[in-house]
């Protein structure tokens, strides 16, 4: 069994912060080949004839893009993520970000306005009361982190697909990009955005989304890894231009579907 740390298997807040620091790439030694002295043949198989970090990384990024396409093919938009009973909720639900919990963005709910742009008919900003008036539903699903740990949480909010219909979004567009208050961003493929459990989340465990979990709105995507569930979202843009993402641009697989 995994070691039990404060009720969440495999998760300790202190450890998480340490790990979050480890997540950050170390630019002087983006050593994709580190520890891989015997990997010449891999580079060969990946189509490189020189063993240096740059060409290996290019080959790996090309394979990662291939993996995006493979995962898109495997993705069934009607396939629902498993749901769980209230008793399965992980308490306390772990905080995880690339910043410490105390540094989480502090968004003012009164002046908050969600900007909706790109390929939509109704380009306007949405205040919190307007957003809260949307029909809401609750889901209890598993959040899976790219680090490997998972936790079950309860999120309530509006279906993103309903909202996209309401604002007249071009659902033939390829991507939706989400921009966060502090500058983080991540994007979804349209089939995932239309999946019925993809949610504009306003509540965690029936309470207004707390600051550390992404007040006032996060995008909950139970069919994606955690880093593709952006918090403190202030803008969404429907687009055909690949928007990438904060972690995705640094080497994490873009599709990252579950």
């Amino acid at each position: 069994m995994p070691r039990q740390r404060k009720g969440v298997p495999g998760v300790d807040p202190k450890h998480l912060i340490k790990e979050a620091a480890q997540l950050l790439p170390d630019p002087p030694r983006r050593a994709f080949l580190r520890g891989g002295a015997s990997l010449g043949a891999v580079a060969f198989l990946a189509g490189c004839d020189v063993i240096d970090g740059a060409s290996a990384e290019n080959a790996l990024r090309a394979i990662s893009r291939f993996n995006d396409r493979a995962q898109a093919l495997l993705f069934n938009p009607n396939r629902l993520a498993p749901v769980f009973p209230e008793s399965a909720i992980t308490r306390p639900f772990p905080f995880n970000a690339y910043y410490a919990e105390d540094d989480a963005p502090d968004v003012d709910g009164k002046s908050y306005a969600l900007k909706v742009g790109g390929l939509v008919q109704e380009k306007k900003s949405w205040t919190l009361p307007e957003l809260y008036a949307l029909p809401q539903e609750k889901q209890i699903t598993r959040h899976v982190c790219v680090e490997g740990w998972s936790a079950i949480g309860s999120w309530s909010g509006a279906r993103l697909s309903d909202f996209l219909a309401r604002v007249g979004a071009d659902t033939n567009a390829k991507f939706i990009n989400f921009v966060c208050a502090e500058g983080y961003w991540s994007s979804l493929d349209m089939p995932t955005a239309m999946q019925p459990q993809t949610q504009m989340t306003f509540k965690f465990a029936d309470q207004t989304l707390p600051r550390s979990y992404g007040f006032p709105m996060k995008i909950r995507v139970p069919t994606k890894l955690g880093f593709k569930n952006p918090k403190h979202v202030i803008e969404m843009v429907v687009t055909n231009d690949y928007p990438g993402g904060y972690w995705e641009n640094q080497g994490y697989n873009w599709f990252s579907g579950l």
Partner: peptide, 17 residues
Amino acid sequence: QATIGGWLAGGIMWHFA
């Protein structure tokens, strides 16, 4: 020293290649 990839994203890239 026994791991491949340098950091998590690198490890994942190698793993899924």
